[in-house]
């Protein structure tokens, strides 16, 4: 169900030996990751291994400090861009815990976001039509348009709205941070369906997840295992199945092999 991955095409994302942390603590310890157009990468790993940190660092969260390495997005130096520039350049982050913004209706937020990312205004009627279709696609009641953004939403509602934004904003690369967590099986199917349609439309995806179950609906081209701040193993979809049956213990790095700091740091 995934779109065509373009093997050999120029990468859209190149992460080289990325080191980053927060509050003096190093979390990412030399991440290397290359995503080519149309590819779906799944990143799996234990709690606290740094998977979510990677998505936030790539998006430019101000709490994280990049300590070394480089990141290129569509050939540009991503680390020199601010959050807004990254979003407008085609990078998207679906949050594990989307933030509530009381007082701001979903529809006016979405219209502003659409205008900001696309760099043009969408006529009101066209916007309404687009929104209605996207709501229907994700099983979101129309009444959501006038509710305040994520305010009082259930976990599932928040995740649907994240995927709705992914559909509307049509980024080049989507970072999905545990978009499958906290969903019941029906919601998981709906949300996965939305992600799959984005992939079919050409969006490349880095999907952070704990569980193999979302990978039944969204087939990854590449699966990475994240351990202690870096990727320790890379394989195909079969690696996810192996993790499901064997856990992570067999992948633990033998003592003394962990890298000690960023090159040149």
């Amino acid at each position: 169900m995934s779109g065509e991955a373009a093997e050999g095409a120029a990468p859209i994302l190149e992460v080289r030996d990325l080191w980053a942390g927060t509050g003096g603590k190093t979390i990412l310890k030399g991440v290397d990751l290359v995503v080519r157009p149309g590819e779906v990468h799944a990143i799996m790993g234990r709690n606290g291994s740094g998977k979510s940190t990677l998505t936030h660092v790539l998006m430019g969260h101000p709490a994280y400090e990049v300590q070394g390495g480089e990141v290129r997005f569509l050939g540009r130096n991503l680390l020199e861009m601010d959050v807004t520039q990254r979003a407008r350049a085609g990078l998207f982050l679906a949050f594990q815990y989307p933030v509530a913004v009381p007082g701001v209706p979903v529809s006016s937020f979405l219209r502003t976001a659409l205008r900001s990312v696309k760099g043009r205004d969408v006529p009101a009627r066209e916007f309404r039509r687009t929104l209605q279709a996207a709501f229907a696609d994700l099983g979101i009641p129309d009444a959501f348009a006038s509710r305040y953004l994520n305010d009082g939403f259930s976990g599932g509602e928040k995740k649907r709205l994240e995927v709705l934004q992914l559909r509307l904003l049509e980024p080049t690369l989507a970072l999905l941070d545990e978009t499958d967590s906290g969903l019941d099986i029906d919601a998981l199917k709906t949300v996965s369906g939305g992600i799959a349609r984005s992939i079919e439309a050409g969006v490349s995806v880095v999907l952070v997840t704990h569980y193999q179950r979302i990978l039944q609906y969204v087939t990854p081209h590449v699966v990475h295992v994240f351990l202690d701040g870096r990727i320790v193993r890379t394989g195909g979809a079969e690696l996810a199945r192996e993790l499901e049956s064997r856990g992570y213990d067999w992948l633990d790095a033998p003592p003394g092999t962990a890298a000690s700091g960023p090159a040149g740091a």
Binding site: M59, H61, P62, D82, V83, T84, R86, A87, R88, F92, L93, F95, P98, V99, V101, F109, T112, A113, S116, V117, Q165, L169
Partner: peptide, 9 residues
């Protein structure tokens, strides 16, 4: 941060 990831300045 959330709003800026949606392209807002």
């Amino acid at each position: 941060f959330y709003l800026r990831t949606r392209g807002l300045s």
